[in-house]
Design a protein around this nucleic acid. Structure first.
Lengths: 148, 148
DNA sequence: GCTTGACCTCAAGTTAAGTTGAGCTTGTAA
DNA sequence: TTACAAGCTCAACTTAACTTGAGGTCAAGC
């Protein structure tokens, strides 16, 4: 076997730890791209591994595929992303991460306070008050995780 | 108007910032409980506000309704949770929180390293390698967020 | 006593992120 | 050259956590 430059879906699946069906799905969403053999089978360049890795990492951090897709658009299709491209992405995501960490800490500290204070007076509870602030935004659009 | 002891769904919705439909939903899931008026309308005790607050907080931390429900079972239905009850819950969740924070930090540091190293060699990338470890678990059961 | 807004139930729709299955085609190794 | 694993497409199913809608009831003010 000659040096393999192109990868089949199966190979990408194995190497990336992502199911074939998920790769199809990412492609349908425009997150990755492939070209086809004369027999209509997908073939991927090596850079797809990096893209998939980025996708999974970002997901783990809680970034949605939609957001990931938007970010990946900034990576020029076709060429391997430069260090500059990667810097832009990872810096942006690192900031999101920092934010999330900060929020989780706030929550944790809130819980800790509640443990200390007994916090049986619901009106004074800092967590409870957080809820109130949220409710002030009215119903309608729901926020599933954290505020931005 | 006399002092209000019982709350209607609408009132709970307003005060908790949760939609009426969501309250119905929580009730169907056994997360909260109500009794009915002669006209079959829900009436809630004040403690429902605390329960809903707990639910929302836990969700924000990424705990699923199923897990929350399990945890809430430990709170005796009927009476207002004691400080002891609350301690048990919040301590357990605080631990989960600590874990999540730690994981996010690990990811953030991974990203930071990648920025520093340029990380164009996919085989050496710490994040990439993390993926590999995951793929070793084989396909099948997917982990959506973090490992426990 | 009537109108109107708040409630009720139950079924169906929604979004994200995939998975599963059916039916058919490719490619490769013996 | 043939068997059979690996691919392909497309539609339907899955789970979580709700929302929306239809069709009907309750309660409180004028």
């Amino acid at each position: 076997m000659a040096a393999v430059t192109e990868l089949t879906v199966g190979q990408v699946a194995t190497r990336s730890g992502v199911a074939v069906s998920a790769l199809h799905f990412y492609e349908a969403r425009g997150l990755i791209r492939s070209h086809r053999t004369s027999g209509n089978q997908r073939r991927y360049g090596r850079d797809v591994l990096r893209r998939v890795a980025i996708i999974r990492i970002a997901q783990e951090v809680g970034i949605s595929l939609a957001e990931i897709g938007a970010a990946l658009e900034s990576l020029p299709e076709g060429r391997t992303p430069t260090r500059e491209d990667w810097n832009l992405l990872s810096t942006a995501w690192r900031d999101q991460l920092d934010q999330k960490i900060a929020q989780l800490k706030k929550l944790r500290d809130g819980l800790t306070d509640c443990i200390g204070c007994g916090c049986m007076s619901i009106d004074k509870c800092p967590l409870r008050n957080k809820e109130d602030r949220l409710s002030a935004q009215g119903p309608g659009a729901r926020r599933l995780l954290v505020e931005r």
